[in-house]
């Protein structure tokens, strides 16, 4: 299991567009990728649930990656968050 925290810097938070891109990225991996905010956790491949988390700028999410390709997936997720959020 791989885990990291990330504080959202994008002004509007995880809004529709980055959520869509994130879901697309997460689908590339076999590992289960969970995004957690204040105790509520959703699967990163699920666009609507991801938007439903309502993550705003300045809030911190915990990303947990579990599965056979977790190293690559965690790295891809970190890169994605840094580049887009």
């Amino acid at each position: 299991m791989k885990q990291f925290n990330y504080t959202i810097k994008d002004e509007v938070g995880i809004h529709a567009r980055p959520a869509g891109m994130l879901a697309k990225e997460a689908k590339k991996f076999k590992s289960e990728i969970l995004i957690e905010k204040s105790g509520k956790s959703v699967n990163a491949t699920k666009l609507m649930m991801l938007m439903g988390l309502g993550v705003k700028c300045g809030e911190t999410v915990t990303v947990t990656v579990t599965g056979e390709d977790e190293d690559a997936a965690a790295k891809a997720m970190e890169d994605f968050f840094t580049a887009n959020l």
Binding site: G20, A23, K24, N43, T45, K46, L47, M48, M49
Partner: peptide, 8 residues
């Protein structure tokens, strides 16, 4: 993408 959403 929403049309392809799993939960939906």
């Amino acid at each position: 993408m929403m049309i392809e959403d799993e939960d939906y």
